[in-house]
Structures are given as structure tokens and as C-alpha cells.
Design a protein around this nucleic acid. Structure first.
Length: 573
RNA sequence: CGGGGUGUAGCGUAGUUUGGUAGCGCGCUUGGUUUGGGACCAAGAGGUCGGGAGUUCAAAUCUCCCCACCCCGACCA
């Protein structure tokens, strides 16, 4: 392909709307353009990257026994009503009506459609296992699309659904996908990690996320320095570190004035104590019931753990006005002591609260805190539990070694669904004994466009993108220093044709631009290899090759160039 | 949805406080010179100043309403 026939609108300056580095570079390198918030056009180069990722995904899915099909984007409401998700999904789902007033949605996901297809077409265990997948657009009206392609409202996803006759079959399908996902992201040359994850609203008990490691990632993951353990921080269990506070004699409860000290930090510094000595009391509305969660002042409440413990469908911070007006509990000064006298409230305490002696807690009076608060003597709780977020240095739940924390971008997520959808939608199969039972399902997603953006987040420098060769829009860019110099042009054309013939994905920058412009664009776009035809090529038959990732430059014999590039690129895969 | 911010040519921006009829850099077009890291000279084209209403002799600038986009939070298979 020649640049003169492409559309590669590179930008010299960073568009003001882009903050995330991948967003900036994808715009500047002429790969994508924004159409609306979270909606993007893939320009030729961006489209090519997407196709390369999709092909890797397809190859690995097919290798694992997957079969590709394509489900519609427009989906009838009836199927969603059947699964119960029409009412549950909320405003994130794009809903529309046809001319007859019938309800439809733009598919945010495809469990309903695949389950519907399955129940109509598959009846017998003999047809299982079945792994069906598609690579298609998904639509989610995110409250806040952000970071360019990392969180869009329209995006490309590969989703595969597994159908098995029993748990063992599901286990096998799940492992096939787990392995395939590892292969996919390895082939994309990404630094990633598979981590245990919360299965969330989709249901099921086992779930893994595939995280591309990047400081800018929205997710946090914990991993062990001593063993293989790795998990989403939402899911990481916290065990007591064993470092019980030094045994201290309980001192008498005392109320102290702490004007304007609302945050743990304020209170701790005002009273001159460590934040870990303060009991943080966070009030929640859990399906309409008031709940307070107590954690140490230096800890954060993990609302997912609270929600899972309470088995409630809604958990949100209690309304400060209601707290004050209805119960007389002032925000910032509320605490567990004498709390029950004021409100009917469930009191949950993180396990670490048990270790506190002579702690500090809000006095439920504006401008006051209690000091020397002791559990049992001064307040009671309903239950202990693990309600906090893990932190760096916490003990690994598997081996006890200290945990590390990194940020990541979720590019893949695999779930065991079980019978959630097959039961709701009566997708059953006949087993060996002639008995009818709901089919056992799993679902496995990869965000394709997100993977492209994640790769850029991870692979770039101050000059631009550094594509891993497997997903680069082209493997090699070739150019003449002077596109008006006939010998150079002839030589460049000749080598370009050689490379094409050798099966290398090569782009010829045949623009009559000055070399600096073409060099800058090559660096910005990030082709793995750059071939330059200069004077030396004409006088000595030596061709310059420069590698984007290392900056390494060398001269190759004109006759060897295709072989050299082919070998070098192969060794990078 | 709450908080904050920004909308001026394709991109980046000045001008807004203190109202006087829009400027700069890059890019684009034409001609010429140049050709190993975003060239130079000359001549040009390109703007409903996000939209609407209002105040005023006069609005990019002041007032009100709306919209879009970005950031933080909440939310999220």
C-alpha cells in the first residue's frame, strides 16, 4: 500500500479534548476520529489494527473449538423481558421503538439472543459442548464515556458463549477459554495478568479478568510477591495481619470537642493520634435499610464486599440531610457509640475493629468525638466481616507473603454463568437418561477496540506509538529520502515490491514530503520497522533499517533486505 | 446524576476582566527555491466567535436559557 492512496491524517498537535495518552496518540496518528462522546470512526490505520487483533482472536477461538456466527445488534424487548433484564438493565441500555411501537434495544451484550438461538436449535446432549462466538459492536449508554476508546458507548467486542451438559463440561470449556485468552494477549505482546474477579450482576461464582498492566488503568489488581495469586482488588480478601495492637489498658470513655474536624485525617491530627486509631463510620442505604460499616481510619470500605455480604440489590451512601434530620446524626461526627438509641441501624464492623483499644469515634453530636472507645464496653455490633479494601503490604490470602498493587485495564473477562439464563429462558437439553435439564453456560468477552487502546497505553514513548508487530497497522514502512530523486524512487519501488512479494505487510510512504516529516510520522504511527532509501542505497547498495522499539539502526545488502526483515519480524512475534 | 472546566478557521490558541465589529502559529491552495528529523520566500483561501433570546447606538466580550465536549465523583458483565 502507498501512503498517497491512503487516508492518514496525522496531527502535529494534541487535540484539547484528549487527556488519556492512548486517546491522544490514536487521534494524532490518524487512526481514529471522534463522532460523539464515546463514539469513534476507525480510520484506515485504526481499522487495520482492529482487524489484526480480531484475526488473532478468531484464530485462537477457532483453535479452542469456537464457531463464529453473527447475532443482530437490534434485539427485541421480549427476550430481555424473559430473562428479566429489560427492567434491570437501566438507562445504560439504548432503547428504541419501531414504527409499530414495538420495543427494541441496541445490544449491550448477547446472552438473551444466544440463549434463544440455542433453545430453538439444540435439543440433545450429543450436540454438546458447543462454543459459539461473534465479533461485533456493542452499545452501552455509559453515564460517562471517557478516555477515548478505553470506555466508549459503541465498541467492538468478541463474545463467546459455551454450552455444556454438566459442570465438568463447563469447567473444561472455561479452561479452554482461559488458555485461549492467555494466548491471545501474549500474541499481542501485551504485559497482562489474569486475575480473579467478582462476577457482579451477571451471576456465577467463578470469574477471571484479563488486565493489561498500565498505570492509567481504571482497575486495581493485587498480586502476591510470593505465589501466583492475583485478583481484582474488589475481590481480594483481607486477612488479619496478625499484628495485633499492643495490649493497652482500657481507659474511661471521654467526649472531646473537635470543631470542624470531619474527616479522619482532620480528627487524627486534631487529637494527635494515628489515623489507624480512628473508627471510620460510613452509613449506607441498603435496599432502604440503614446500615453502618465501621473500618479503621486508614482503610477504605469495599462496598462490593458489603453488598455481597448483605445480599442487597442496592447499596448507596446514606443521604446526609436525612441522616441529620431524621436521626440527628451529623455527617462527620457520627459513630457507633449510643448509635442504637438514635436509629434502627445494622452495625457491621471490619475484622480489624476488633483489634482497636481506646479508639476514637464520632460522638453523634456536631463538633464532638469520643476518645478511648472500646468495643463491647462502649458499643456493640451486629457482625464482623471483611469489609475493607486490600492495600499494598497486606498479607496474601494464599501464602501470607505481602501483596503488591498495580493498575490495569480490563481487556477480557470470562464467567461461568451456570443456568442463570438457560433456566430463565428454558434452554434445556435432553441428557443421556432422557431427562430434560437446563444447559450450563459460560460467557467470555474481549474488548477489541479497548485492547487497541490498552496496547497504546502500554506501548508508546514521547515520539508516539510503538506497536507490537503482531497488531501494528503495517509491519514495515519504506520511504525514499528524496521522493523527487529518480534513482532513489526506483530503488524504493523495487524494494517495496520485493517486500510485498515476500509477504511483508509494508507501507510505502511515497509522499513528496521532506524526510523529516516522514520520519516524524513514522515515529508517531509506530511501525515496528522503517526502511529508508538514501544516497548510500544508490552508491553502495546498502539499505537502512531502523527499529522503532529499540532505535537500533543498521544497513543491509539490498538483496538481503526482505529476508532480513522477515526473520527479524518473525523473531518478534 | 452531583461538582469543576472549556467551546473563537481542519488542529493549537490570543482577544472576554474594562463592549467599538476577530488576530497569531501549524495545516490548506498557487508560484518559486529546497530535500537525512515537522524547510524558506511570495501571494491567497478559509470564521453564523457552540445555539437561541435579551441589554446596548454597538456584543466573541454583559445577562438569561439551552446544547456539546472534557475532568473528578457516583455508576458499570
Amino acid at each position: 500500500m502507498r501512503v498517497s492512496k491512503m487516508l492518514i491524517p496525522t496531527l502535529r498537535e494534541v487535540p484539547a479534548e484528549a487527556d488519556a495518552i492512548s486517546h491522544q496518540l490514536l487521534l494524532r496518528s490518524g487512526m481514529v476520529r471522534k463522532v460523539a462522546a464515546g463514539v469513534y470512526t476507525l480510520l484506515p490505520l485504526g481499522n487495520k489494527v482492529v482487524k489484526k487483533i480480531e484475526n488473532i482472536v478468531r484464530e485462537e477461538m477457532n483453535k479452542a473449538g469456537g464457531v463464529e456466527l453473527q447475532l443482530p445488534i437490534i434485539q427485541p424487548a421480549e427476550l430481555w423481558q424473559e430473562s428479566g433484564r429489560w427492567d434491570v438493565y437501566g438507562p445504560e441500555m439504548y432503547r428504541l421503538k419501531d414504527r409499530h411501537g414495538r420495543d427494541f434495544c441496541l445490544g449491550p451484550t448477547h446472552e438473551e439472543l444466544i440463549t434463544d438461538l440455542f433453545r430453538q436449535e439444540v435439543k440433545s446432549y450429543r450436540q454438546l459442548p458447543l462454543l459459539l462466538y461473534q465479533v461485533h459492536n456493542k452499545y452501552r449508554d455509559e453515564r460517562r464515556p471517557r478516555f477515548g476508546l478505553l470506555r466508549g458507548r459503541e465498541f467492538i467486542m468478541k463474545d463467546l458463549y459455551s454450552f455444556d451438559k454438566d459442570e465438568d463440561g463447563l469447567e473444561e470449556s472455561y479452561h479452554k477459554m482461559y488458555d485461549a485468552y492467555n494466548n491471545i494477549f501474549s500474541r499481542c505482546s501485551l504485559d497482562f495478568r489474569a486475575v480473579e474477579a467478582d462476577s457482579g450482576a451477571i451471576g456465577g461464582d467463578v470469574s477471571h479478568e484479563f488486565m493489561v498492566i498500565a498505570d492509567t488503568g481504571e482497575d486495581e489488581i493485587t498480586f502476591c510477591s510470593g505465589c501466583d495469586y492475583a485478583a481484582n482488588i474488589d475481590k481480594t480478601p483481607c486477612h488479619s495481619s496478625g499484628e495485633d495492637a499492643a495490649v493497652e489498658e482500657e481507659r474511661p470513655l471521654e467526649k472531646k470537642e473537635t470543631p470542624e474536624a470531619r474527616t479522619v485525617q482532620d480528627v487524627a491530627s486534631y487529637l494527635g493520634v494515628d489515623a489507624a486509631k480512628v473508627i471510620k463510620s460510613l452509613f449506607y442505604n441498603a435496599d432502604g435499610k440503614l446500615v453502618v460499616v465501621l473500618v479503621r481510619g486508614d482503610r477504605l470500605v469495599n462496598e462490593i464486599k458489603v453488598k455481597n455480604y448483605l445480599e442487597c440489590s442496592m447499596l448507596e451512601p446514606a443521604d446526609p440531610d436525612e441522616m441529620r434530620n431524621k436521626y440527628g446524626l451529623p455527617m462527620g461526627f457520627a459513630g457507633p457509640v449510643h448509635l442504637r438509641e438514635k436509629a434502627d441501624v445494622t452495625i457491621l464492623a471490619d475484622t480489624e475493629i476488633d483489634n482497636l483499644t481506646n479508639a476514637v469515634a464520632g460522638a453523634n453530636k456536631n463538633g464532638y468525638h469520643f476518645v478511648n472507645v472500646n468495643l463491647g464496653r462502649d458499643f456493640q455490633i451486629d457482625n464482623y466481616g471483611d469489609f475493607r479494601f486490600a492495600q499494598v503490604g497486606d498479607v496474601c490470602p494464599c501464602c501470607g507473603a505481602p501483596l503488591q498493587v498495580q493498575h490495569g485495564i480490563e481487556v477480557g473477562h470470562i464467567f461461568k454463568l451456570g443456568t442463570k439464563y438457560s433456566e430463565a429462558m428454558e434452554a434445556t437439553i435432553i441428557d443421556e437418561k432422557g431427562k430434560e435439564a437446563p444447559v450450563i453456560m459460560g460467557c467470555y468477552g474481549i474488548g477489541v477496540t479497548r485492547t487497541m487502546a490498552a496496547a497504546v497505553e502500554q506501548c508508546h514513548d514521547q515520539d508516539g506509538i510503538i506497536w507490537p508487530s503482531a497488531i501494528s497497522p503495517f509491519e514495515v514502512v519504506i520511504m525514499a529520502v528524496n521522493q523527487r530523486d529518480e534513482p532513489q524512487v526506483n530503488c524504493a519501488t523495487e524494494i517495496y515490491q520485493q517486500l510485498v512479494a515476500a509477504g511483508i505487510d509494508v507501507l510505502y510512504d511515497d509522499r513528496r514530503e521532506r524526510p523529516g516529516v516522514k520520519f516524524k510520522d513514522a515515529d508517531l504511527i509506530g511501525y515496528p520497522a522503517r526502511v529508508v532509501i538514501g544516497k548510500k542505497a544508490i552508491t553502495e547498495g546498502l539499505i537502512e533499517v531502523k527499529w522503532r522499539s529499540t532505535g537500533e539502526m543498521s544497513f543491509q545488502e539490498k538483496g538481503n533486505i526482505a529476508t532480513y526483515l522477515k526473520d527479524a519480524l518473525a523473531s518478534m512475534m
